[in-house]
Simulated assay, not measured.
Amino acid sequence: MQYKDYYKIMGLSRNSTQDEVKRAYRKLARKYHPDVSKEKDAEAKFKELGEAYEVLQDPEKRAAYDKLGTKWKAGEDFRPPPNWDEGFEFKGGGFTGGDAGAFSDFFEQLFGRAGSRPTDRGPHGFHVRGQDSHAKIYIDLEDSIHGSTRNISLSTPEMDVQGYVKVKHRSLNIKIPKGIKPGQHIRLAGQGDPGSGGGKAGDLLLEIAFNSHPLYRVSETDIYLELPVTPWEAALGAKIKVPTPEGSVDLKIPPNSRQGSKLRLKGRGLPAKTQGDFFVVLQIALPPANTERAKAVYQKMQQELDFNPRLSLGVKSL
């Protein structure tokens, strides 16, 4: 996926006002509109211009894009920095109110798609409910296993009277429910935009993601551990101590275990109506042949063991 420099596409500096963004778009749209333009690749340039404008004309998308920083160059391979979108608060059902399907993979990776703004009618006319706010927060695996209370910081973009995008910050104390999974949401009633005409305030929806863990990975309600074992532990079997999020346990490795074999500890995954499991995935670690003694051991194995792992491929050892 290639990085797109939206400011370069529109010929703008990063401190341009929103009015300058609009003026630049109107000028370039006339230049590259496929119906009238004689420029080479006008249609592609017009589409690229529309994508840049979709981002820079909207204070929320622009502030989110600016959060990526300035070290990227147009056209270079790009991956969003880890947790780049943490705590970034935006309105409506998603980052974009446009037709995201018409935009690039770069755009889709950052902004996704949008929903709609809810309204309700009251007994004395229209009461417009405030927009819901959305943000992604990252928690630790242990927060989900035990439940916790966290203080989170949210950043909300606004446009000042001069037309510049500014970011304001707020902090909230929230309760992390036990057993919450990545992709699920915590709804905080009344913490979104205020309503108008006496309408209710919108809600704040916090999408949950997990911080990367040095030992474990999570899939739905199951937790996985890649466990290094020696060749003799895998071949002969062993009883070893294994770390889990709730303390170490004794685990029996069956004889003749293979690389990638999975051993299950039932009910030691994420808390849920149907409790998740804890899976140990065996990774056979080979001792280095970095001493004469170690080399001699490997040579003896080579001489005494009739073993060719490539027999199933139809090839023989030399």
Rank of each mutant, 00 (worst) to 15 (best):
H124R: 13
D140S: 03
I152Q: 02
F126D: 05
P123D: 03
H134Y: 14
F126P: 01
I139W: 11
T156C: 08
R121S: 12
S133H: 08
S148E: 11
H134F: 10
S144Q: 02
V128A: 13
V128K: 07
S116W: 06
H146L: 13
I137Q: 01
L154F: 14
D132T: 14
A135H: 05
S133I: 02
E142L: 10
Y138M: 04
D120T: 12
L141P: 09
D132R: 05
Q131E: 07
T156I: 15
V128F: 10
I145Q: 09
V128P: 03
L141C: 11
S148I: 11
D143E: 08
N151W: 09
E142W: 06
S116T: 15
T119M: 01
R129K: 08
P118T: 13
Y138A: 03
E142D: 08
L154W: 11
D143G: 06
L154T: 12
I145V: 15
A135N: 04
D120C: 07
L141Q: 11
Y138C: 03
R150G: 00
E142N: 13
D132A: 14
D143W: 14
I152L: 00
G147P: 15
D120R: 08
F126I: 01
H134A: 06
H134I: 08
G122L: 11
S116F: 10
G122F: 08
P118R: 04
N151E: 11
I152T: 05
H124P: 03
Y138E: 08
L141F: 12
